[in-house]
């Protein structure tokens, strides 16, 4: 009574769902979610639910995936405060530093967003106000080879752990700070 191909088509749904839950990269998982939506629309229409299939195609494949890409993009970000660079003073070691930092946090699917502040006080204040996740500032030059020493202060503990474990850059100090008066905001 039920045709044979219906069983095979229905079996595609758990297959693609398994594929979805084994993904680690959030963006790859969202593309697989779109594939799951297409397969689900096929299954629903084979089983006779044309309205459910239409909803799945419109919401599951298009709307949810698009909105989730935007949401993931704006939440998986590390905001690092730096001092505003003077245009005549081209410091290429800071671009080198930023590039290697970007490489480390990219392994955890994070983006790096640089926020510039005019002076040290406003930089510090922004960290204490929880506007940014960390600051980076040069605190002098090392004695050995005259390279600048970077003092990086992070206020998110997980981020601090990741950087401490994986970020190996010469002349770099990483410290962790808990901002005072914890109003409940992040």
């Amino acid at each position: 009574m039920i045709d044979n191909y219906v069983y095979v088509i229905v079996a595609l749904l758990p297959l693609s769902a398994l594929m979805l839950v084994t993904q680690t990269n959030p963006y790859n998982a969202l593309v697989i979610r779109a594939i799951l939506g297409a397969v689900a629309a096929l299954v629903y229409s084979v089983l006779g639910g044309a309205d459910v299939a239409l909803t799945e195609a419109l919401v599951g494949t298009m709307l949810a995936v698009t909105l989730y890409v935007i949401a993931v993009r704006s939440s998986l970000v590390m905001r690092l405060g730096i001092l505003a660079q003077k245009p005549d003073l081209t410091e290429d070691y800071i671009t080198e530093f930023i590039a290697s930092l970007r490489k480390v946090i990219k392994k955890h699917h994070l983006r790096l967003e640089l926020v510039e502040y005019p002076d040290r006080d406003s930089l510090k204040q922004a960290l204490l106000n929880r506007e940014i996740h960390g600051i980076c500032d040069r605190s002098g030059t090392s004695n050995i080879d005259n390279n600048p020493v970077y003092q990086t202060t992070i206020r998110v503990h997980r981020l601090f752990e990741i950087l401490q474990k994986e970020f190996t850059y010469p002349d770099l100090k990483i410290s962790y700070i808990t901002p005072p008066n914890s109003e409940d905001k992040h």
């Binding site: 494949t61 298009m62 698009t66």
Partner: peptide
């Protein structure tokens, strides 16, 4: 009808993505 709508919606979603 659902098949034709899914066809065009899928492609539109793909371009957005």
């Amino acid at each position: 009808v659902v098949a034709v709508i899914t066809l065009s919606v899928g492609e539109a979603g793909l371009m957005l993505l």
